[in-house]
Amino acid sequence: MEPFALYFATILTLAGIYAALTLGLNLQWGLTGLMNFGPLAFVAVGAYTSAILTVGGSAQHLGGFGWPWWLAWPLAALAGALLALPIGAISLRLRADYLAIATIGIAEILRLIVRNEDWLTGGPLGIPGIPRPFEGLGLPWGQFAYLALVAAVVAGLYAMAQATARSPFGRTLRAIRDDEEAAKAAGKNPAAFRLQAFVLGAACMGLAGAMLAHFFKFMGPDALDPVTATFLVWVMLIAGGSGNNLGAILGAVAVWALWAATDWLAGQLPGELATRAAYVRLFLIGLALQLILLYRPQGLIGERPPRPA
């Protein structure tokens, strides 16, 4: 029994981390309509910030500050926001699809930076030995405690995202997304609002990156894969229902559960088939996205804007 409970705790922990990422993307895309194709960049910045601040000293990379995680995580979120600030300030004036291209470019630049700036990130060898909160409790309780921590963070982010969506600020973001000219006519400055939404979403992603790095206890350039850090997040948001915070969380959990289940199923297949199954899984995720877009474009739970009271 215990091993399975542990395995489910692992799946749920990762789903929770993805939920934080998806909430960030929902703020940017779902609420404001900003097409960010570079969540990878903000995840990377958050992950490396927290990793460098918490690991022990090493000749391979910057480190040795030995901060506790609860100090490092807020800074990881801040690092995500700080990266988003100049990018947003420059590229948010561009039309939506140009922002998408700019964010892809930033994500690739960041991947090259972490691969080459050895003094900072350890280069291709990455940063091993990142401490995981509560691991001192041992198995299984350490793992359950980390799951509880991730769940608490996601709950906190959800509460804040809900408050944002209901606030006048959130209404303005939706207005800008749906009809920019009308929002302008009502005296709102779209550029400023977009920047704020972009930065807040990036902070969520930075925090998710930190949680990811501490869960894996390792961060390296090969771990920053656009398929798992960008593409999957988009699938989760679209499947769950963009514009709906609960949908974002539900999408993250559902898609991650599917991802994990197909991995387990592929493992049951004999030799040659297992190899093919690896590619079939990626194909299936793409197919699922197509089907959702065709038959249920609003996702599992569509957007439900609050009614004016």
């Binding site: 990455g126 990811l212 894996f216 390792f218 390296g220 090969d222 771990a223 894969d225 398929v227 798992t228 991995d263 592929a266 493992g267 030799g271 297992a274 190899t275 199954a277 690896a278």
Partner: peptide, 10 residues
Amino acid sequence: EADDQTNPQV
């Protein structure tokens, strides 16, 4: 058998 997709996280 398990496939790591040549990615440490996976």
